[in-house]
Design a protein around this nucleic acid. Structure first.
Length: 260
DNA sequence: ATTGTGGCCTGCCCGC
DNA sequence: TGCGGGCAGGCCACAA
């Protein structure tokens, strides 16, 4: 599913959509329009306008425009971005591989004939104008050690739940949370505020490093733990049978031996 | 405020 | 062969 690495790929792809005049908007699915705005609202804001910057905060893609309003795109679990028919990510875990035109939930057409299309089979994503960025914590790809500390300190919630909370740290999804905690040797069930200084440092290092590495590899499902995230899966580090349970409302897999 | 839960959405996979 | 139930999880509304 799209987590931070996939959205970063979409962001880079979206840079090829900048500085091109937008000639029309297709918004066939009202459900996909968030923030209370309608298709005509999107047309008024964007037709005749141009995207001038592609930013990403966590899993939110934000396209700034010349005339002011920004376009926020969320990809949910199965969303993908296509610019001029090129997709940002080919192999998206949990998403169908084939393409049905009905899954094009929102698109902008450019005067030069190209397009920017948001595809989302399961419709868990959405687009909106001027998304509220104040509700997002610092981006996981660039968060500082002290910012991570303050995101975790004093919390009795499970460590993994806190990492998944986008208002605390933006960009960590279920797969990356499992991968990072596995690498850092920390149980997802640990109270978030219970980490020692050394553990917090370790978590920060693995969070930053893992995200960078998954961006380079091309997807959140390409971590070392991922193939074992299944019934019968074993820890790639020590061979122990992985434990599966629900933490923070999400299916979680971890090693009972080295994640403490 | 903090934390936890349930539901939304729909394609896919398994068992019958 | 078709069918139904369960599952996947990002995000949000809501409850305690």
């Amino acid at each position: 599913m799209p987590e931070l690495p996939e959205v970063e790929r979409y962001r880079r792809l979206a840079e090829s959509a900048l500085f091109r005049a937008i000639s029309s908007i297709a918004a066939p699915d009202p459900w996909f329009l968030k923030g209370g705005e309608s298709g005509p609202d999107f047309r008024r804001a964007l037709v005749g306008n141009r995207f001038v910057a592609a930013d990403r905060i966590g899993k939110l893609l934000v396209l700034a425009t010349e005339r002011g309003p920004t376009l926020g795109i969320r990809f949910g679990m199965t969303g993908t971005l296509a610019v001029d028919g090129r997709v940002g990510v080919e192999d998206l875990r949990y998403a169908p591989r084939r393409h049905d035109p009905a899954w094009d939930r929102w698109s902008a057409r450019f005067a030069d004939g190209g397009s920017l299309v948001v595809r989302d089979p399961r419709r868990l994503g959405g687009v909106r104008l001027d998304p509220d960025l104040s509700r997002l914590g610092p981006d996981a790809a660039s968060i500082s050690p002290s910012a991570l500390d303050s995101a975790l300190r004093g919390s009795a919630a499970p460590l993994k739940a806190r990492l998944l909370d986008q208002s605390r740290v933006a960009g960590v999804g279920n797969l990356i949370a499992d991968e990072v905690l596995w690498r850092a040797g920390l149980s997802p069930q640990r109270p978030a505020g219970s980490l020692s200084a050394n553990e917090a440092r370790r978590l920060h290092r693995h969070l930053r490093r893992t995200i960078g590495y998954l961006i380079d590899r091309g997807g959140s499902h390409l971590g070392d733990l991922m193939d074992e995230r299944r019934v019968g899966g074993r820890c790639p580090r020590d061979g122990a049978a992985l434990v599966r349970s629900t933490v923070g409302g999400r299916t979680s897999w971890w090693c009972p031996v080295h994640q403490v």
